[in-house]
Amino acid sequence: MRIWFLLLLALVTLEASSISTPLLDVQGDHGTIESAELKVGMSGFVVRHFDTTHSAIIANARVTQTTPPSNRALIIFSEYDGIRQNSLPNGKWSPKAQDEVIIASDYGRGLLIAPNDDTYNAVSKSIPNIEWTHPDLYATYLSHEGHPTPLVSDFHRFCSAGSVGLLYIQTTETLFTLDCKNFSLLQTLSSNSIGKESKTPFYSRVPTIRSAWWGEGSSKLESYEPYYLEQIALNNPKNKELYELYKAKFGEKSALLRHFDFKE
């Protein structure tokens, strides 16, 4: 049964290679690109080519809307924060038409959050073509920050610094695939966690994550699944598919549904 589960999971998990396309037009902090392979929430960056041998990343980019009939997608720009070097001057370029937009360039690297080692090993081995960043590294980062409860901003900073594109979170019955930099939900798959053990804040071999004296994230996480389900909802309040998934699994009176800001 486990072999069949893993085979099915390997066949249907999100696979995204880097997508490169010119920026068609710009209106303020938004622009338009053309590609049939994009999902809302996918992230990347904008590249300015100054000549045949010189180029620079000038902005982050995130897909906010797709229009399948025309293969057009709307993206929003923000300051590029993948590499920080305060000792060097920064360019003040704004995206413009014909700049290159690269989406999903680091989706070949992933971070898996799982409740126990059996689940981690099963899921990580079942997803092909992913270079896994071990959760020990993330736990060590959280200990440095003093956050035994990981924040969405922790995921963003860790994944930006390590060029990790995808975040997988396994709950009891669902594997969530998110963009690791902005926590946008990209895919959900029905899959069962193996075993009843649940380690907080997630499976790792780091024995203790240091706590800061005060501040958000400094308290110990008491329960694995409720926390991640809530964070996914809070960061995807307009995702109808997620809303319906939560309603089906937890009922129409579930407190999780209050995080969505649309009406049926």
Score class of each variant (00 low, 15 high):
residue 55 S to T: 00
residue 129 N to L: 10
residue 64 T to E: 14
residue 122 A to I: 04
residue 56 A to V: 12
residue 96 K to Y: 08
residue 68 P to R: 08
residue 86 N to Q: 14
residue 51 D to H: 08
residue 26 V to Y: 06
residue 79 E to N: 09
residue 52 T to R: 15
residue 108 G to N: 12
residue 44 G to W: 01
residue 80 Y to G: 05
residue 48 R to N: 07
residue 27 Q to H: 09
residue 42 M to D: 00
residue 102 I to D: 00
residue 102 I to L: 11
residue 67 T to Y: 14
residue 31 G to P: 08
residue 39 K to F: 12
residue 58 I to R: 00
residue 79 E to K: 10
residue 27 Q to T: 10
residue 68 P to E: 09
residue 52 T to S: 14
residue 119 T to H: 06
residue 33 I to Q: 00
residue 43 S to M: 01
residue 114 A to M: 06
residue 129 N to F: 08
residue 84 R to Y: 10
residue 24 L to T: 00
residue 75 I to V: 14
residue 42 M to W: 03
residue 116 N to F: 04
residue 128 P to I: 03
residue 94 S to I: 06
residue 20 S to W: 00
residue 33 I to P: 02
residue 104 A to W: 00
residue 128 P to M: 01
residue 88 L to H: 14
residue 127 I to L: 09
residue 127 I to E: 04
residue 60 N to L: 04
residue 121 N to V: 07
residue 117 D to H: 11
residue 85 Q to C: 13
residue 81 D to E: 15
residue 23 L to E: 07
residue 18 S to P: 02
residue 124 S to H: 02
residue 42 M to E: 14
residue 125 K to T: 12
residue 57 I to Y: 09
residue 88 L to R: 13
residue 78 S to A: 13
residue 57 I to T: 14
residue 18 S to D: 05
residue 102 I to T: 15
residue 41 G to L: 10
residue 35 S to Y: 03
residue 29 D to T: 10
residue 72 R to F: 01
residue 38 L to S: 08
residue 114 A to F: 03
residue 67 T to E: 13
residue 128 P to G: 02
residue 32 T to S: 10
residue 127 I to F: 04
residue 71 N to E: 02
residue 113 I to Y: 04
residue 72 R to E: 13
residue 60 N to V: 03
residue 98 Q to Y: 03
residue 89 P to N: 03
residue 88 L to S: 13
residue 44 G to N: 04
residue 45 F to A: 06
residue 94 S to Q: 11
residue 91 G to N: 12
residue 63 V to F: 01
residue 85 Q to I: 11
residue 51 D to M: 05
residue 82 G to S: 11
residue 76 I to A: 06
residue 65 Q to M: 09
residue 38 L to Y: 03
residue 52 T to F: 11
residue 94 S to P: 01
residue 79 E to M: 08
residue 92 K to G: 05
residue 77 F to P: 00
residue 70 S to Q: 06
residue 95 P to H: 07
residue 104 A to N: 15
residue 111 L to K: 07
residue 115 P to R: 08
residue 113 I to R: 03
residue 90 N to K: 15
residue 81 D to A: 06
residue 120 Y to N: 03
residue 129 N to R: 13
residue 52 T to Y: 09
residue 49 H to T: 10
residue 67 T to L: 12
residue 61 A to D: 02
residue 26 V to C: 08
residue 99 D to H: 14
residue 96 K to M: 11
residue 103 I to C: 02
residue 28 G to H: 06
residue 83 I to Q: 13
residue 126 S to A: 15
residue 57 I to K: 11
residue 116 N to W: 11
residue 101 V to D: 01
residue 31 G to A: 10
residue 82 G to C: 09
residue 23 L to M: 05
residue 73 A to V: 07
residue 75 I to L: 09
residue 71 N to S: 01
residue 33 I to W: 02
residue 46 V to R: 02
residue 95 P to L: 07
residue 68 P to T: 11
residue 89 P to D: 02
residue 62 R to H: 08
residue 73 A to I: 02
residue 50 F to L: 12
residue 85 Q to M: 11
residue 125 K to R: 15
residue 40 V to H: 09
residue 32 T to G: 00
residue 65 Q to E: 15
residue 86 N to G: 12
residue 86 N to H: 11
residue 33 I to E: 01
residue 42 M to K: 00
residue 30 H to Q: 12
residue 115 P to M: 10
residue 44 G to P: 06
residue 109 R to L: 00
residue 58 I to W: 04
